[in-house]
Simulated assay, not measured.
Amino acid sequence: MPDSAPVSTNGYRGRFAPSPTGSLHLGSLLAAVASYADARAHRGVWLVRLEDLDRPREVPGAADDILRTLYAFGFRWDEPVVFQRDRTHAYQAALDRLTALGLTYPCGCSRAEIARLGPPGIDGPIYPGTCRGGLPHGRHPRTIRCRTDTQRIDFSDRIQGMQSQVVGDSIGDFVLRRADGIHAYQLAVIIDDAWQRVTHVVRGADLLLSTPRQILLQQALGLPQPDYAHVPLLVDDAGRKLSKSLAAAPVDPSSPLAVLKRVWTLLGQEPPRSDCSLSAFWQQAIARWRIERVPASSMLHFQLERTERHDQYQVG
């Protein structure tokens, strides 16, 4: 278990929550750096949570590899790592509570049907409400959905500014438990954030559109709403997300300082001294962190340089 950094009891609790579907890549590192720097600049607690609910997509050994890489890059977490696979009872209890409130219903529609019948929304096709009034004859339940309405969700993002979304109009009734029995990310993440008393969430802008759904669930369950900040998503020159790009190759834990300095620059921060050590980098970075300098953009373009190892890349 890593050494804990000195923290105060000012109430700030942040977290980094990667999914072990592969090694830590550059986009995940950017979110981790921003999350860690913001927590430490506030002399707060910083946690790591492995979001490993989606077992079919999990890569064996990826969780341990992510933790080793974070440690090699100088990250130190303050409490034991939490694994979502150990928390399914909590997600089911929350789902039962939502059902008791009349906010869920079973759905027998397949993804292909929704794609064919649902109008386009901001995050894929909008669920057309086929099963909202009850399962049609001959249908069997596949998923459990959250019943939405015309309530508008407004929140202020510390990087992206004011955000507003009517979940029912933009997304539709969304899934809380998948056809394979796995609880959906939108439900699990808000239950874990509340349980871990997370006060500040700093994460990638690919999750910005999900935040209103999470706030809606927080409000329904009477859970506290953290302060949100979404850092830009890294894309390559072709505009591809890291998961669809060569940049998804793992960052090199044997040479962390050069990568950290480049990530720090991408976050719009004042560069540290060129000759600093890893520990000195973090000391300077935490002292100089200003979240208002992070670009208020949903995407950042970058170029890559191949390293001597063919399976790893650094930012160029």
Rank of each mutant, 00 (worst) to 15 (best):
V7Q: 08
G11P: 11
S19Y: 13
P20Q: 10
P20E: 09
S23F: 14
A31M: 04
D38V: 06
W46Q: 08
A62L: 04
L67S: 09
Y71D: 15
F75D: 04
Y91H: 14
A93V: 10
D96Y: 05
A100Q: 12
T104H: 02
P106N: 06
P106R: 01
S110P: 12
P120A: 14
G121L: 10
G121H: 08
I122S: 13
R132G: 10
G138W: 04
C146W: 02
D149S: 12
D154Q: 05
D157I: 09
G161H: 06
V166E: 13
V166M: 09
D169M: 06
F174G: 03
V175R: 00
L176T: 08
H183N: 10
Y185R: 01
A188M: 02
I190A: 04
I190V: 15
D192Y: 10
W195C: 05
H200I: 06
R203Q: 10
L208M: 09
S210H: 03
P212G: 05
P212T: 04
R213Y: 00
A220W: 05
P226D: 05
D227M: 11
V231T: 04
V231E: 00
V231N: 00
L233M: 14
L234V: 11
K244V: 09
A258R: 07
K261T: 13
L266S: 07
Q269K: 13
R273C: 12
W289N: 09
R290Y: 04
I291W: 04
I291F: 05
F302I: 15
F302S: 10
E305W: 05
E305I: 11
R306S: 12
R306H: 13
E308N: 12
D311H: 14
Y313S: 06
